[in-house]
């Protein structure tokens, strides 16, 4: 356990070292927030609500979803690259579990990003952009719980895709596909209630809505009461399922590992 904590800590230090990158990133997020704000402002210019959502509710949803989406991707790319360039052979011999190490580094990444990126920018959004607090304190707590599960699901899904690199070797295509599917089905762009009904039905059975839509819907009060608990339950099922699937796939992959030299 101790060594994994060290990995997370080192990863945080790595981030602290590159401050230009950090500022560029912050600037781009700020810009995106402004674009989103004015886009939705224009959408709401002639009406007070869409599907029962007021402008405040909508902008809260979109901004919170945008932040959450940054946390639901994982270290899959890293794993895929280790597999592709053959380094995985050495990594597997080292005295730690590769997946656990990657997850530890990922946690380091996310913690530091939360403190330096999401938190200050989030406060900025609260002050200047009509982003509101959760409607009740219960939904606030449920949001935190659900967001953690969403991040868990996103991380494991990402690793799951990356493990496929043991079979396909290159992962460019799969990764682009994952990106497209996740950002769309997860409800990171628009709340899923705006989508056509057939689309909502499909996404109900997919793990993607558990990544972003469910937590943010709880936050903004789209899901309340029993519905919220049901959604949390389905999140839990996905979390366990993905965790189990990753373990199975990993042990299968370990049996058939083919390693190239680059």
């Amino acid at each position: 356990m101790r060594k994994y904590i060290e990995f997370a800590r080192v990863q945080m230090q790595v981030h602290a070292a590159y401050s230009a990158w950090f500022w560029a990133n912050t600037f781009s997020v700020l810009l995106r927030m402004l674009v989103i704000y004015f886009f939705w402002k224009a959408v709401y210019s002639n009406r007070s609500e869409i599907e029962g959502m007021s402008f405040d509710g909508m902008i809260t949803y979109i901004i919170i979803a945008m932040f959450l989406q940054m946390f639901v991707s994982g270290v899959g790319r890293e794993l895929a690259h280790t597999i592709k360039d053959g380094n995985v052979a050495i990594e597997l011999m080292r005295p730690y579990h590769l997946i656990t190490r990657l997850i530890a580094m990922d946690i380091g990444d996310k913690v530091i990003y939360f403190i330096r990126g999401a938190l200050p920018l989030g406060i900025l959004a609260f002050v200047f952009m009509d982003v509101t607090m959760p409607s009740t304190w219960q939904s606030g707590i449920l949001f935190l719980l659900s967001a953690l599960m969403g991040i868990w699901i996103g991380t494991f899904f990402d690793l799951l895709i990356a493990i496929l690199a043991f079979w396909t070797i290159n992962l460019w295509g799969l990764e682009v596909m994952k990106e497209a599917v996740v950002s769309f089905f997860s409800g990171a762009l628009v709340p899923l209630i705006l989508f056509p009904d057939w689309f909502q039905t499909i996404s109900l059975f997919l793990p993607f809505q558990a990544m972003v839509y469910v937590p943010v819907a709880i936050y903004t009060g789209i899901l309340t009461g029993t519905e919220a608990w049901l959604a949390l339950g389905s999140q839990l099922i996905w979390a366990i399922l993905l965790f189990g699937l990753l373990r199975v796939l990993w042990s299968v992959a370990m049996k058939k590992v083919t390693i190239f030299g680059g």
Binding site: T168, I169, N170, L171, W172, G173, V176, A180, S183, F184
Partner: peptide, 25 residues
């Protein structure tokens, strides 16, 4: 990596489609 390449090309198209779908929604 032929399979991966085809998948990628398909996915890029999918992304474009998703962007338009967003506007449509």
């Amino acid at each position: 990596y032929r399979m991966d390449f085809l998948l990628g090309v398909l996915s890029v198209m999918l992304q474009q489609f998703a962007g338009i779908f967003f506007v449509k929604i």
